[in-house]
Simulated assay, not measured.
Amino acid sequence: MLANILYTRPTIEQALSALDKSRLKLPVLNPRALFDDFESQPVTLVELSQGPWSSPVADTVMLAKFAMCAKPKRVLEVGSYRGFTTKMLARHTAEDARIVAFDRDPRHGEAYRGTAWEAKIERRVGDMCEEAFVQDMPGSYDLIFLDADHSYDAVKRDTEILLPLIAKDGLFIWHDYANWGRFSRKNGVPEYLHECSRNIPIANVNGSWLAVYSPAWASTDGIELFNRACNSDADKAGTDPWTIEVVRG
């Protein structure tokens, strides 16, 4: 009986979430409208991520394509866990790019430790606070990927610490903008990002659990690009499965 009760807990959470169709309110961004070469960028998938906290394959592939198109020189990943996403970022950035992988658990990074990609990665261990990034200058990262504690208070704290570190033309990407964990309060990413979107342009990346923001979108040209990317006709092709071009995540 106890086993049955424990088994039904996630099912109940999922069922309750499914009833709330209005939770995800951000505009949906088509990355092909941001980068002409988005589709043509080849992603090499050598291994599948392991562990329950690892990012889904579709999201890591999407993130790798963003990295290939944006060509960041400095990348920060917060919430590195076993390091499979870190390794994907290392594989799909330039040889001279440098990646900082941050996690509070000292065991993090097993996926890339001892491999050829480890030389590109600076591994840091610590708790999330402003003091943990005092060595990083404002605007010093071209790409920031936040995938740590997803509770509302934690993602708010982490975002406020990290936003000043993103370059003016950089990309800040959150993971788990998704309809799970509302009733257990384990995922407050949607609620926090909805609040943030009142002040800065944020969008859900088509076909993924990623949400993205760039300081460059604050300019007149930038917001026009953002609006075009969020209003792509390709993503409004109707209900015919042969014509819909929304990415299957």
Rank of each mutant, 00 (worst) to 15 (best):
E131W: 02
D96A: 03
L146C: 03
A90Q: 02
R82L: 03
T115G: 15
K120L: 00
Q135T: 14
T93A: 00
R107A: 15
A132C: 14
M137E: 15
F145G: 02
E130L: 07
R91F: 05
E130T: 15
A119N: 05
K120A: 03
A90I: 01
E95V: 12
A119Y: 03
G109T: 14
A132Y: 05
D142H: 09
H108N: 13
R98P: 02
C129Q: 02
A90M: 02
M137Y: 11
R123Q: 12
A111E: 14
K120H: 03
A94W: 04
R113A: 07
V100S: 15
E122A: 10
G139K: 02
R123K: 05
G139H: 09
D127N: 12
C129K: 12
R104V: 12
F145L: 01
P106C: 09
C129W: 05
D142W: 08
T86P: 13
E95R: 10
F145T: 05
P106H: 01
W117P: 05
E131N: 08
R123H: 10
R104G: 14
C129I: 06
A90F: 00
L146N: 07
V134P: 03
V100D: 10
Y112S: 05
I121L: 08
G109A: 08
V100Q: 05
A97K: 07
D105H: 13
G83S: 03
D96V: 01
E131T: 06
F145K: 02
V125P: 10
I121D: 00
D136P: 12
F84N: 13
T85H: 07
G114K: 09
R98N: 02
E118F: 00
A90G: 05
E122S: 08
L146P: 04
E131M: 04
D136M: 15
R113Q: 13
E131Y: 00
E130N: 12
D142M: 08
R91L: 11
G83C: 11
V134I: 06
R107H: 08
M128F: 06
V134E: 11
R104N: 11
E110H: 00
P106M: 06
D103L: 07
R104W: 11
D103C: 13
A111F: 08
I99V: 08
H108A: 09
L89K: 15
K87F: 01
G139R: 01
F133N: 11
F102D: 10
F145R: 00
M137N: 14
T85E: 06
R104P: 15
D105G: 14
A97C: 09
A132R: 12
M137R: 12
I99G: 01
H92S: 08
E95A: 15
A97S: 15
R91Q: 14
T86K: 04
T85F: 08
R98E: 00
A111R: 13
D103G: 10
D96G: 01
L89G: 11
A116F: 02
D96K: 04
D142Q: 12
G114N: 09
Y141R: 13
F145Y: 04
I99C: 04
F133V: 13
G139C: 09
R104Q: 14
D105E: 15
H92F: 01
H108Y: 03
R98W: 01
E122Y: 02
K87N: 04
R123V: 11
F133P: 10
I144S: 02
H92T: 11
A116K: 07
R124T: 12
L143V: 09
